[in-house]
Each structure stands twice: as C-alpha cells, then as structure tokens.
Amino acid sequence: MRRLPWWLILAAAGTYAFLYVPLIVVVAYSFNNSRLNAEWVGFTLDWYRLLFQDEEMLRAARNSLFIALVSSGVATVLGTMAGLAMHRWRFRWLPLLVVTPVAMPEILLGVSLLVFFIQVLHLTLGMLSVVLAHITFSIGFVAIVVRARLAGMDESVFEAARDLGASPWQTFRLVTLPLILPAVVAGFLMAFTLSIDDFVITFFTAGVGVSTLPLQIYSMIKIAVTPEVNAVSTLLMLLTLVLVLAASRLDKGLMRAGR
C-alpha cells in the first residue's frame, strides 16, 4: 500500500478535530461553575441538579420519549413492509415515494404537513400531529436499511421455504424476519434517534400544544442561554451515542447505507 503524505494526515486530523472540539466544549461547560459559557471557573454538578428540577424540561423529555417510541414503532413496521415490497416486487414508483421525503429539505415537509393538518384534517396541532409527521420521515430510513439487508441475501432460502409448502406469512415469520431482524432493529433505533433529535419538522407540527426536548433547547438558546442547555445536551448526546453504537453493531451495513 502506498504511503500517505504527512500533510494529508495532518489535514484529516484537523477535520476530525473540527468535528469533535465543539462537542467537547459543550460537555466541558456543562460542568462549569459559572452562568456564562465564557471561561472555566470550577467543577460543579449544579446544572444537572437544576435540570432535574426543571418541570418543563422533564415534561418535554417525557413527550420526546413517548413520541419517539410510538413513531419509530409504527415507522419500523411500515418501513419494513416498504423495504420488502421494494426488494421483492421492484415497483419503480415505490422508492421514489419512500425516499423523496428523506431527500427534501426538511422545512418543505414541515410546512406541507402544517397546512395539511390544519387546513384539511382540521386537527389541533399536538402530540398526534407530531407522531404522524415523525412516522412520515422515518419510514424511508427503515426501508432503505431493510432493503440493503435483503439485497445481500441468497434468494434460494425463500424459494426453499415456499417449495416446502410454507404460506407467505410462515415464510416471513420463520425465514425472512429472523434473517432481516438485525436490520429491522437497526432501523428502529435509527428512527428512534431521528425522532428524538428532530427539530425542524417538530417545530412546524407541534403547535403550542406540546413541547419536545429539541423545541425546549431551541427556546432556551433563543431566550436565555445558561449551562443548563449544556447539561441537557450532554445527556442527550450520551443517549444518541448509545443508540447509534447499538445500531451500528447490529447492522454493519448501516454505515454504508448511503451507497
């Protein structure tokens, strides 16, 4: 293998530093004994203590968890179906329908759902509208992961099951599902992470009825920045870190799903 020039390694190291330093700064200031994120004063856990006494923040966290669980659950079922359908029957329109909501700027999906919910469904914005919106953008991610898994598989297994007289449901439950399960679980974790992290689409579909962690963080950033934001950010980072690591363990191909 050709040796890499030193300046290339240096440039790459610089980019990795660019990726990590800002997050390290956020975490570090969450333990800083000062109201201002300006200079290091001393170690404290006060911001975390404050966080766990913040009723609004706790309610937002509960909402976020509930929305993420429900929407990623439904999106996993629908997304797995879409992945199976795209692989098995090769409809040309289905990938377009599944992938476009993912590929568009988020704001477009956000405003179109806002108009749709209010003008057509006459729905009061709240928990339900947010859950429906999150399902919409999560289906595509699950479908892509599941289809990628199916694409690498030996078709003869499914044919063998059919030839042995298994019904479509039996084939699915006893052969297909166990084989694609890692991708399904990885898709679920991905949808969960996306839901818990989503800001833009939630911003348009939540109305005044419901707050989530990202919405709460946004209003704190806009109105009064205190290191409490750093504390909640650090905990949220820890959560997504665990979820992403779990998902990438389950499905090696997940990282290359973009291919």
Partner: peptide, 10 residues
C-alpha cells in the same frame, strides 16, 4: 448523531 441544535449551539 448528536442533536442538530446542540451542534449549532456549540
């Protein structure tokens, strides 16, 4: 994978 707002806030 960390929240988008957190990365902007940083």
């Amino acid at each position: 994978a960390s929240n988008f707002l957190i990365r902007v806030y940083a």
